[in-house]
Every structure is written in structure tokens, then in C-alpha cells.
Design a protein around this nucleic acid. Structure first.
Lengths: 229, 229
DNA sequence: CTAACTTTGCGTATCAAAAACGCAAAGAAT
DNA sequence: ATTCTTTGCGTTTTTGATACGCAAAGTTAG
């Protein structure tokens, strides 16, 4: 016992909800806990905030330590402060929400990240603490964000097809769109570049590849752009 | 010195950004600090989280203690965790955002709330800590929320005129609307009841009074309603 | 090799909502 | 009585959303 305070202080943690997209379904990154409480139970990557780091830095550090992932799109989600979230002591957790390209990350055996893995959003294992509630909050945020941010930037490969982009939207929003309207609507915004390149080795007609045009996207978001589908 | 921990813990506080509307301009509630640091400087109402209360409860308690306000619409905004926000020790602050009817609240002299007061959003005094940054974040949230929540519920009197409602939207969004389109668009949603009552003692033609229809609003928000103007 | 089939890419027709604005009645001010 | 401002209700015009037709690309199957 080393640190003393005049008043009681809660412990402060950061937890990360990392979404990935595998081409057809939305996935979330979970780790298997190696310590009590909830040992061997799945949980969101996260841990306690150090006094010499910001909460954002903590979230990135813990994510890297527990899964090997870094340099991902990440933003603060919500702070969870119920009284008995953690059986050990009062812990307040600042939750973060992150998006990664699935192809950029496969959990590797034999490392700290060996216990990390992707889970389909509709086949989740039981989660430690209030992490299911945090995850549901993050999913809601993703559903909102996809309307006014091209989250495909973070979730798809640099080059992708229109069908892949539409599948992502349909997976996130759990809703179907007309292929032709989806395509023309999203092309009309100008945030996509049509590449002079086609997918190789496809069944039937090969689709052309697309990429996001970041400067154009920046320009549009600055004047209150809406990606509504 | 009474409380000991194995690891260092930051202090945890909650601060409230309370917006009010006086009929023509957007206001924010500030208190004059009576203690160091930043003594006599204006700041957001707020204080440290007790270990036997949630952060939400803390925000409501502090707001009541410092301004006398209670039972207001309030929701969590963002958590601010920069390293040197507070010169005393590491303090992480969970910011809340609240809306009140100006007529429901006038700071009273001779009470704990004597130091509280409304300030116009475009005539703010210097603020303590990083409270200006918090305030700007809250204003941005209000601008977003007014699109899909009838924030007039919280900011206007129970009975109001269409012009007052439009003035509120124009004050929040810093944008002008066509009077006739604004009126028909918002009436068409059904969230307003047209009362069989007119304003008394007006210059020129007396406008009719309106009120929000809460059940209708609830019904619409549940099916993904959009109040976009 | 040819026919069938699936996906893709581009187009148009139809429908609904947003934006612009005309106009007269209410009712105080002169 | 006349002027003037605000209010309330409408129409026209323009824009955007939705539904869907169709042929070309290019693979699969006979």
C-alpha cells in the first residue's frame, strides 16, 4: 500500500470496443482474461489508467499490450460509472470505440495477444463485468456514425468493390439496399475514386475496384456533409 | 491523509454545462469559484465524485448544491482526461450537458447559488481549468441534438409560439429559416399541439400558443424519427 | 463452341419531400 | 380610417429518393 489521498478516489480504467469487418459480417475483438475476477471469461481489451498518460493514451497502450494492435482509428465512446461494475473496488471505465481492417489484424499464437480473437456480433460469448452493455453502446454508435462518416475508410481494404461496401453497410445497419441506388448515391458524393483496375479470379463478371478519396471526404465533412443511405 | 491504494488513482470529477434560452439568445450557467485554484474565476458547476454515488448522481448533486437547480434534462457528454487540467493533482472530469427553461431558474442572492449566473454564449467571461473546451464540446452536441431531438421540450416554456421555437433553432444553429416552411414542417411531424389560446398584450397580431405532445414525440423517436430542419 | 446464367454498370420513370414565395386576415399603431 | 407588422395558410418550383429496366461482361454448364 503506497499511495494515499485525503479523499477516496475511484480507480479509472479504459476499455476498447474494436470492430472489424471480414467481408460479410461485423466482428468484435475480445480477449480471454488470465486473472481474477472473471478468469477465463471473455472481455474487452483494457486496463487501468496510469497517472502519467491521458485516457486516450491508456486505451491505445492497453489495446497494444493485449492484442498487438496499434495505430487504429479510435475515439471515446462513453464513461461507465455504476457502483458495482467491478467486485474488487469502485472502478470507473472510459470506453473507446475503434475500427480496424480485419485483414490488418489476425491474433497471433505465442504472444501476449494469443488470447485475443474476433467474434461475430451475433455469436458473442458471455462477457466479463458490464462489457456487454459497453459493447451494445458501441454498436449503436457505429450505426449512427456510418450515416455521417465513411466508416468504410477504417473497415475495408484500401481497394474494395461496391458490393463489399454495400455489404458492410448492410451488416452494420442490418438492412438491405437497392444495389443500383446505393452505388449511384455514394458515387455522386465524390468520396470514392473509381480505379482503373478489376478484381482478379472472380466468378462471373469482375467488378472494378474503388478507393476512398480522403481530401474529398475531409472537404465534405467540414461543410456538414451527410452520408445518409 | 486517510485513504490508501496499491496504485495511484486520479481524482474523478463531474462538471455540468447547463444551457438555457431566454427567448432570443442561448445562455450558459456559470458559477464564480470561491476557492483556489482559479478563485473568483468563472467555472462550470461541478465537483468530485463520491464513492457511494454514480457519476450521474454526482453531476446532479453538484449542480443542485452549487446552483439550486434540479430535475433537469441531463446527459453525459465527454470525459476530459488531459494531464494538467488541474494544478492540484491529476483530475479526470466527466462532463455533462443539461438543458433548462430559463424561466424555471433565476439564481437567487443569499444562497449557495448566489454566485451562479447566466451568461450569453457570445459574451463569456474567462473560464477556469479547461472549461471553455468543455463548453465548446457541449455546444457542438447541442447543435447536433437539435436535429433529432425536440430540445425545445427542455428549453422553452410549456406554452410557446412558433416564432419562439424558430428563434431557438436559429440561436442554436446560427442559421435562418423560412418562417412558413419552418412552421409547416414542424407541425406536420405532429409533435406539437396547437392550443386554443393566444398570447396576450402583443404588438400587432397575437400568435397562437403551442405545446409539445410528449407521447407523440416518444412514439416518433422510437421509430428513428428525424427532426431535421 | 454455344447457350445459359450471374454479376455488374448505367440508365430512366415515378414518387415524395424540400425550398421559395404569394397573399390575405388579425390586430396594434398612427 | 389608414398604415403597418405579424401571422397563418396556401401554391409552385426544384430537388432528391425510390423503384426498376436492360444490356454488357464474363464465367459456368452442356
Amino acid at each position: 500500500m503506497a499511495f494515499e489521498y485525503e479523499y477516496q478516489h475511484p480507480a479509472l480504467a479504459a476499455d476498447c470496443v474494436v470492430f472489424g469487418f471480414d467481408g460479410s459480417e461485423l466482428n468484435v475483438l475480445l480477449i480471454k482474461r488470465g486473472i481474477e475476477p472473471f478468469i477465463n471469461c471473455y472481455a474487452l481489451p483494457g486496463g487501468f489508467v496510469h497517472l502519467d498518460e491521458t485516457i486516450d493514451e491508456c486505451a491505445r497502450r492497453e489495446l497494444y499490450e493485449e492484442t498487438g494492435l496499434r495505430d487504429v482509428f479510435m475515439e471515446q465512446l462513453y464513461t461507465f460509472g455504476a457502483l458495482n461494475r467491478d467486485p474488487r473496488e469502485r472502478v470507473v471505465s472510459v470506453a473507446y470505440y475503434a475500427l480496424v481492417r480485419s485483414t490488418d489484424y489476425a491474433p497471433e499464437g505465442g504472444t501476449d495477444a494469443a488470447q485475443a480473437g474476433w467474434f461475430k456480433m451475433n455469436q458473442l460469448p458471455p462477457l466479463a463485468f458490464d462489457h456487454l452493455e459497453i459493447l451494445k453502446t458501441a454498436h449503436q454508435r457505429l450505426k449512427n456514425q456510418i450515416r455521417y462518416r465513411p466508416v468504410g475508410f477504417e473497415l475495408l481494404d484500401l481497394k474494395f468493390t461496391m458490393t463489399q461496401l454495400q455489404t458492410l453497410y448492410e451488416a452494420v445497419l442490418a438492412k438491405k439496399f437497392d444495389r443500383r441506388n446505393f452505388s449511384s448515391k455514394i458515387l455522386k458524393t465524390g468520396v470514392l475514386d473509381v480505379l482503373d483496375e478489376k478484381v482478379q479470379n472472380t466468378a462471373y463478371r469482375a467488378p472494378r475496384l474503388l478507393s476512398f478519396n480522403r481530401p474529398k471526404y475531409q472537404e465534405l465533412t467540414e461543410k456538414g456533409f451527410n452520408f445518409e443511405i
